[in-house]
Design a protein around this nucleic acid. Structure first.
Lengths: 177, 177
DNA sequence: TTAGGCATGTAAGGCGTTACATGATTAA
DNA sequence: TTAATCATGTAACGCCTTACATGCCTAA
């Protein structure tokens, strides 16, 4: 899902400034995707150029140079565009895992490097698990709860696997050396 | 992990042509990443320019225009580069799920569209599960087995979740309409 | 007063995909 | 002979990250 469309989806809920959208994506929606400012601001400007969103300047200064806080609202045209685009999404997922690739080639790593990698991944997973568990479950849609629970089940399986087999690989790797 | 480095890792095992590397990545290593020809051939040419790999022409014709089958072999310089690069990999993973994003915003979809999406994802997961189970477990390194088993455990958890809660969401979505 | 968060934006570059272009070999 | 698979490559474009540039507001 392109960032442009993702932003429209967020603005469906309520109005946001660009800075706020960045925060929402990278904190409460971090299980779906990430977004940097360098991608986000041009995306919002494209959406506005296509009249999918409208903006209202909040701070009075810098109106000419485009700076100062702006709050965006989705337009009817934007809502229609979002509904059309989300229907095009298929179940196909793109895989690209540095962690698994490193482990696949792990006979080029020392047992210590492997176990560090596994431990770091475990720590990241548990941090993400805590984040998701802190998220509000009231006042969110069924679909939002679904995405959270799905991710939690994936994390849970990964943690279990790494705690079990992750420990075992360190012993096995040691024997190869 | 950049495609260049990934290719070096594959060539560590044995010599391959570009076409064969493409096949290996997109079939037996599909749980790690994908690669298109448009990315692969320039990557191999870059690696050769840096003397990380060497090539031997197999077919005698088209030697001048760069066409005709070539088989690549990793050099000592390439081996050293790979070992240095794989050590740099951290446990951080990038998330970007169209499937989950669509479900997050699924109040803009009909119950039928949601259930189609879930069913397609389930079919994809089960197809991938069968592929991984058919993969040889002998003659592969401990790390390779680890990556396969990790992915299988993730798929297994996803299938269980979608079969259980995935059915439930269809009922819940219907009530919202 | 200074560090950190709020706020917007541009420029360069990285890494990839899709589509196109070409041609050989092999099995039905 | 024809379709599929083998085989290599380029060009255009998409979408993103990192780094840079600027400046305000607020609480310790």
């Amino acid at each position: 899902m392109k960032l442009d469309i993702f932003c429209l989806g967020i603005l469906l809920e309520r109005n946001y400034s660009g800075y706020e959208i960045h925060k929402v994506i990278n904190t409460t929606l971090a299980h779906l995707r990430q977004a940097s400012f360098g991608a986000l601001y041009p995306a919002l400007n494209r959406l506005q150029a296509k009249e999918f969103i409208s903006s209202e300047a909040i701070t009075e200064d810098h109106l000419n140079d485009g700076l100062g806080k702006k709050v965006f609202a989705i337009t009817d045209k934007g809502r229609a565009h979002f509904k059309a685009e989300i229907k095009k999404i298929t179940a196909a997922e793109v895989v690209n895992s540095d962690f698994l690739s490193a482990l696949h080639f792990s006979n080029n790593l020392t047992p210590i490097e492997v176990s560090t990698l596994v431990d770091e991944r475990l720590a990241d997973l548990q941090k993400e698990q805590r984040r998701l568990l802190r998220l509000p479950t009231k006042e969110v849609s069924e679909g939002q709860r679904f995405a959270i629970r799905y991710t939690l089940s994936q994390i849970s399986a990964a943690v279990t696997f790494l705690k079990g087999e992750g420990r075992a690989i360190q012993t096995l790797m040691s024997k190869q050396h």
